[in-house]
């Protein structure tokens, strides 16, 4: 069987859930080979656990100071070395940019933002959700080695022991790829809550919070959820942009999305419409968000949310 390269998403060696999802999908297509770009000890056990047969370890000393381009170069070299049958990359801002450059380099087709990947008769078949989630598209790559970026929460990670054979790989990085330098980097402050794009439950607040996110956050904590925000809430300075859900923020696809004081503009829907279950609290019964919901409460979030939080805490015992 052919190798399927999976670019490992990790924070300082801690593998993120998206990687386990990608390894799970890769197993449908061939033999998963994890590509770990980092420093220090590679997380071999974590990658083996989800089926990595091979682990290419790339020391990032020469790479981490630069934006995107070196990673595209090293993946190109790995594709050529392994004759991989496909490359799976997490669908983050950085991941998509790496994928775009890689596709040009290896003269191969590219599919971004897949929400599912299956083996087809002639290579992988992907599913994408487009036009703010109102259409579903099935596509495949017709030239070269398919480069596919996959959104978080696209598959339930399944454990399967892989051989996890470690192979050091030393790429040659060109000077041209080092032209955009990372001059400074401020790691995101840990919120203590689940990562927005990975969370099973997301509780969001909009303009309707009036700037008081406490009821939203308390509910999120009672449910073990991530906190999100509409652009109106972000533009008002109530939450940093990293919390924004929507077209120009994060796309989330959790089991449960709770929209509070959010009207449901098309740009917001674009980021949450594929959530499995949607509920909303809004004092305006005409709010468009109610067209999407499985359950909606017409009411003031400042009274509904605290009461709901109490109820959740009570039931959870």
């Amino acid at each position: 069987m052919s190798e399927i390269l999976v670019l490992v998403d990790h924070v300082d060696g801690t593998v993120r859930k998206t990687t386990n999802e990608l390894l799970t999908l890769a197993r449908r297509l061939g033999e998963p080979s994890a590509v770990y770009v980092g420093s220090g000890e590679a997380p071999v056990e974590a990658l083996k656990k989800f089926g990595a047969e091979k682990i290419y370890v790339v020391d990032d000393a020469e790479i981490k100071g630069y934006l995107v381009a070196p990673k595209a170069e090293l993946l190109q070299q790995l594709v050529e070395k392994t004759s991989a049958a496909a490359v799976l990359i997490p669908s983050s801002g950085e991941g998509k940019e790496i994928a775009g450059r890689l596709a040009i380099k290896i003269e191969s087709g590219l599919i971004t933002d897949a929400v599912d990947v299956e083996a087809g008769a002639s290579g992988p078949v992907t599913t994408q959700s487009v036009f703010a989630g109102s259409w579903t598209v099935q596509a495949k790559v017709t030239k070269g080695t398919p480069v596919i970026t996959v959104k978080p929460n696209s598959a339930a990670p399944e454990e399967a022991a892989g051989a996890g054979t470690v192979e050091e790989f030393a790429p040659t990085i060109s000077d041209a790829a080092k032209a955009a330098q990372i001059v400074a980097s401020q790691p995101r402050k840990a919120t203590g809550r689940p990562e927005l794009t990975e969370a099973a439950i997301v509780v969001s607040g909009g303009r309707g919070t009036g700037g008081d996110f406490e009821p939203v956050e308390n509910l999120a904590d009672a449910l073990g959820a991530a906190v999100g925000a509409s652009r109106a809430a972000v533009d008002s300075g109530w939450k940093p942009h990293t919390f924004q859900v929507g077209q120009t923020g994060k796309t989330v696809s959790p089991q449960l999305y709770v929209a509070n004081g959010i009207s449901g503009a098309i740009q917001h829907r674009a980021g949450m419409q594929t959530s499995k279950t949607i509920v909303a609290v809004n004092k305006d019964e005409e709010a468009p968000i109610f067209e999407l919901v499985d359950f909606g409460v017409v009411g003031d979030l400042h009274s509904v949310l605290p009461a709901l939080t109490d109820e959740v805490t009570k039931r959870k015992g």
């Binding site: 019964e285 067209e291 409460v297």
Partner: peptide, 23 residues
């Protein structure tokens, strides 16, 4: 000559109206 091809497009069925209650 596109390097990727769309095989199928489907309009997602509108979400069935959920239950709305007034607080």
């Amino acid at each position: 000559v596109a390097w990727s091809a769309v095989e199928e497009t489907t309009e997602r069925p509108p979400r069935t109206a959920g239950e709305i209650v007034t607080d």
